[in-house]
Design a protein around this nucleic acid. Structure first.
Length: 966
RNA sequence: CCGAUCGUAGCUCAAGGGUAGAGCCCCCGCACGAUAAGCGGGAAAUGGUGGUUCAAAUCCAUCCGGUCGGACCA
């Protein structure tokens, strides 16, 4: 190996020896380590070792069991694992029980697509079985992929929302809501396909062009005149059939409105429209109507409804007369304001039918309007209405005719518009918005909203702005619609009286059914009739089980995952409530955090969590979305992207780098992922690994029990490094505690590169290699080397699970040390002691000053080195600053070692500037062929050029040759 | 469009009114004894525009760009 074959002294040195491989070979070795951990029952041993410790519960938010994992999953799971592994290494019992969300529409849709036409011939139970199989397939796939990341947990016993016990828990929580009076039956508009006679989800709706009527209608204000002229608000609609269900009109609070004087049916009126849409309105009305309009100069400026005292504001809350009034004469029609009004089209005044539109519904809820939808499952008007029996789209013509007759239509009755309109994905017919009966959880009952807000205030939100985000959502959200008209889920066990039509949501009945589900699963609901589900002998007033039929709604899957604290944590002796931490992406403010909070406050009066941590989303190098759908979207558009699926990436480079990617990112923001990021991480990884390798190499034959020196016996420089590392460890542990993992990894890399590789290792090489193996000088360096390696291994263990374990295998262990680093306590978790503080304040400032001097020497050495000299060939003359001089005087030899030069002398004069002044000369004397330092040879027989130190070592070796192979 | 949030070297992160710091990447030198390593040196940044201030990456306004939410959909 030595380039100079005459370098026979190489054999006399203590060069590094270790089996710790330089090449990580992670892709191959990680699976082996995972298998070994499994073999040795490591996770169970960890739990056993921590059984008596304090508990820390990080409750897993269940991913949806559909599809392979993507980088967002990786981010989330690894973050959770970092928390759990760190807590475990503080001595806490931190059980990680992974879960999956297994019900819901996406799976049902996926199965639908697979089944195709076969679905029509299948029973609900058969469809559910297919959904079950689909979900379990992806649970298994994802479980394998998550475990491959080195995440520790109860993978053999996860929680699944389709477990019988979980399904029972869902119903039990529903019963609590029913018992406490939160449940009520209301109506809400949904997409409805009249030909399929079913509700549709957004995902089942496709948009296509449709030709619809386009009509402008005047609604006369009741008893309200502006400047003495009766006012009428003008609306525009493409669904005349919804006009019979009109219960309000809304204006935008900030738009400016105008009143156009007109004469209609011989009567003077002021037609109110938004100023910016007036021109288009005028162009749209019939020539006769237009002819009656006053010229623009005479239009009345009404201002904005939000402007106090404006004529427009005077309209708000006032009644108007419905032109088709006679059917619903008792209804109070008024004008309101709402933000969803636009200037895209229409008049700036929106016809509002709460039973036939989402925005309309919101307005209705706000103003206490009926959710009126006089249309049946087949899309025909109900019997007791004016258009009874007419199909809605057919009824358009009748409505228009009646409007003409009432003199309310301002535009051409035959006018149409071609626009994008929702259609059923199956039958391709146009769909309608129609209110149907649904179960709701009231936000106001028992002060739920207010109490949820109180609990938000008692929770720690990380980062803090999460509190505002969820607070705003809880403040504004409407009642929670709990029911879904689907098959793949848990039924809301309610019944309908076949005689009276009354809906029955009985808490005792629900608990009875929870018992059935606990034994047979929710399938029992679909397999049995009402009489077999209701308790035997049960009576409800004069009615018994035979008088009821099952209601057919299932529960919103958000409610399912939202009661995981009840289904999973509460009954588990290793967990309990409230849990310490929920940790999910920031979208879950509206999702799981939200539903868990509401369900728990409603049923238990308090939040299920003490703290909630959120992370951002994975984006690509340019900051654009990196979700699966975003990538597919780009592919569709033909954008070139180099995307490596996580499983392929792991096959190529292993999971460790992905763990470092997660740990190194500031996850409160969005997190960039790209192959480049991973490549750069490879460099950091190599630096850390090689640092470990060097440390381990110099611990060959080191027995900590025998060879460790106490702090007091350490070389001052070694004590400095040890102090630095101890301080680093405390900072790192504190960073883990504060969930700022990225500073841990950055500090580790800095420590390896700056303090260890470029400083400690470089400086101590002479002592480690050249001194006698057991000399105190060498043992001092080794003691610190051992402490440093050990400290660093525990600090990086939560992040670099594989590499830390690899290091641990080769690191000399102290008596009582466990066989896995993951059973260790982390360095730096204990509060700082007085002795440490004293050492630090004595040691650190002194050495920081000396290192500044070292930097000056190295800068001065640079030209010398460029002349192809090694730094050991130099003799430097230093003029320290006045402040540095007391630290240096009398320590020239130590400074020479620190600067890795053969000789360092102090100039009696002080430096003139703030920096030390350094002169470099070639060292004098002879170069010791063993340690390469220049000086005076000792003149040992047979070794004429050796320096004094090396002569002694070589002589000793000659007298006491080490056992071969040592 | 609305709400929230983020923009610091090529990359990942620091500084939270007072000279913008690291590490990696890159360039230049060295490289024997950490060698698919290592050492030294160097170049390189506050998204734009206004404002407050003696002083702004930091506070305010506005614009630009990104992300999440506003989907009964997880």
């Amino acid at each position: 190996m030595a380039k100079d074959p005459t370098d026979s002294y190489r054999q006399t040195l203590n060069l590094p020896v270790t089996e710790f491989p330089m090449k990580a070979d992670l892709a191959r070795r990680e699976p082996e380590m995972l298998a070994a951990w499994k073999q040795s029952g490591l996770y169970d041993r960890i739990l056993a070792a921590r059984a008596g410790g304090p508990r820390f519960v990080m409750h897993d938010g269940p991913p949806y069991a559909n599809g392979n994992i993507h980088y967002g999953h990786i981010l989330n799971k690894i973050l959770k694992d970092l928390v759990v592994k760190y807590r475990t290494m503080t001595g806490a019992l931190a059980v990680y029980k992974p879960g999956w969300d297994t019900h819901g529409l996406p799976i049902e849709l996926q199965v639908d697509r697979t089944l195709g036409d076969k679905k029509a011939t299948m029973s609900k139970l058969d469809i559910r079985a297919a959904c079950h199989a689909h979900a379990m397939k992806y649970v298994d796939i994802q479980r394998t992929e998550f475990q491959r990341l080195g995440v520790f947990g109860t993978w053999d016993d996860p929680y699944l929302t389709l477990n019988k016990s979980y399904e029972a828990a869902i119903v039990r929580e529903l019963s609590k809501l029913a018992r406490a009076g939160f449940l009520y039956k209301g109506k809400k508009p949904v997409h409805w396909c009249a030909s399929c006679r079913t509700a549709l989800a957004e995902a089942e709706v496709e948009h296509a062009d449709k030709t619809s009527p386009s009509i402008y209608v005047a609604f006369r204000m009741k008893d309200h005149a502006i400047d003495g002229v009766p006012a009428a608000v003008v609306i525009w609609t493409t669904t005349p059939w919804t006009l019979p269900a009109n219960l309000a009109v809304v204006l935008h609070p900030d738009f400016e409105y105008v009143g156009i004087p007109a004469t209609l049916g011989g009567e003077r009126q002021l037609l109110v429209v938004a100023r910016d849409l007036a021109t288009r309105f005028v162009a749209a009305v019939t020539p006769e109507v237009r002819a009656s309009f006053a010229p623009e100069e005479q239009w009345a400026k009404l201002g904005a409804p939000s402007a106090a005292g404006s004529a427009a504001s005077a309209l708000i809350g006032k009644q108007y007369t419905h032109p088709l009034l006679e059917t619903r004469a008792e209804i109070d029609h008024r004008a309101w304001t709402a933000d969803h009004v636009t200037t895209e089209a229409g008049t700036g005044i929106v016809h509002t039918a709460p039973g036939h539109g989402a925005d309309d519904y919101k307005v209705g809820v706000q103003h206490g309007l009926d959710v009126y939808a006089p249309v049946d499952d087949g899309g025909k008007f109900l019997a007791d209405t004016r258009y009874a029996g007419q199909f809605v789209f057919k009824a358009n013509a009748s409505v228009i005719a009646d409007l003409v007759a009432a003199g309310a239509l301002l535009s051409d009755p035959a006018a149409t518009i071609k626009h994008s309109y929702p259609h059923c994905w199956r039958c391709k017919n146009a769909v309608i918005f129609r209110a149907t009966p649904q179960w709701f959880c009231s936000m106001e009952h028992n002060g739920l909203r207010g109490r949820a807000l109180d609990e938000i205030g008692r929770t720690r939100w990380i980062p803090p702005w999460g509190e505002n985000r969820i607070r705003g959502m809880i403040e504004n959200r409407p009642d929670w619609c709990l029911s879904r008209q689907r098959v793949w889920g848990v039924p809301i066990p309610t019944f309908i009286n076949i005689h009276t039509g009354e809906a029955l949501a009985d808490a005792d009945v629900m608990e009875h059914i929870a018992g059935i589900f606990a034994e047979h699963g929710a399938d029992a609901w679909f397999a049995r009739e009402a009489v077999d589900l209701l308790p035997p002998g049960w009576r409800h007033g004069e009615f018994g089980p035979a008088d009821f039929r099952k209601d057919d709604a299932i529960v919103d899957v958000w409610f399912e995952s939202g009661v995981s604290w009840a289904a999973v944590c509460e009954p588990d002796p290793g967990m309990g409530l409230p849990v310490d931490l929920y940790l999910e992406g920031s979208d879950q403010h509206r999702g799981w955090f939200h539903s868990s909070l509401l369900a728990s406050v409603a049923a238990r009066g308090k939040a299920p969590f003490k703290s909630v941590l959120t992370h951002g989303f994975v984006v690509d190098q340019d900051g654009n979305a990196y979700s699966k759908s975003a990538i597919e979207e780009k592919r569709r558009r033909g954008v070139k992207i180099d995307y490596t699926a996580p499983e392929d990436q792991i096959k190529k480079t292993g999971a460790e780098l992905l763990r470092m990617w997660v740990a190194g990112a500031e996850f409160r923001n969005d997190i960039a992922y790209s192959p480049t990021v991973l490549e750069h991480l490879t460099e950091s990884y190599r630096r850390i690994r090689n640092t470990f390798r060097f440390l381990l190499g110099n611990l060959s034959g080191f027995d900590p029990g025998r060879d460790c020196l106490p702090d007091s016996a350490l070389e001052p420089f070694d004590l400095y490094i040890l102090t630095r590392v101890r301080s680093f460890a405390r900072k790192a542990a504190a960073a883990y505690d504060d969930y700022t993992f990225h500073t841990v990894l950055k500090d580790v890399v800095d420590l390896c590169a700056v303090d260890l590789s470029a400083l400690f290792i470089d400086v101590t090489k002479d002592r480690l290699y050249c001194e006698a193996a057991a000399s105190p000088h060498r043992r001092s360096a080794q003691t610190v080397t051992w402490h440093v390696a050990r400290t660093l291994a525990t600090i990086v263990a939560p992040i670099m699970v594989f590499t830390a374990e690899d290091v641990w295998k080769y690191l000399p262990r102290a008596a009582g040390d466990p066989d896995s680093v993951h059973l260790m306590l982390m360095a730096g978790i204990h509060p700082v002691t007085e002795a440490e503080t004293a050492t630090e304040s004595a040691v650190l400032p002194r050495w920081e000053a000396l290192l500044a001097l070292r930097a000056e020497v190295q800068r001065a050495l640079e030209p010398f080195r460029r002349e192809k000299h090694a730094s050991l060939d130099a003799r430097v003359i230093v003029r320290p600053t006045a402040a540095q001089r007391p630290l240096c005087a009398g320590h020239e030899a130590m400074l020479a070692e620190l600067c890795i030069v053969s000789e360092l002398v102090l100039d009696p004069a002080d430096a003139a500037s703030d920096l030390a002044e350094v002169r470099v000369e070639h060292a004098t004397g002879t170069r010791c062929p063993r340690c390469w330092r220049w000086g005076t040879p000792a003149g040992l027989a047979g070794h004429p050029d050796l320096c004094g130190r090396c002569a002694t070592v070589v002589a000793q070796l000659a007298a006491n040759p080490p056992p071969s192979g040592a």
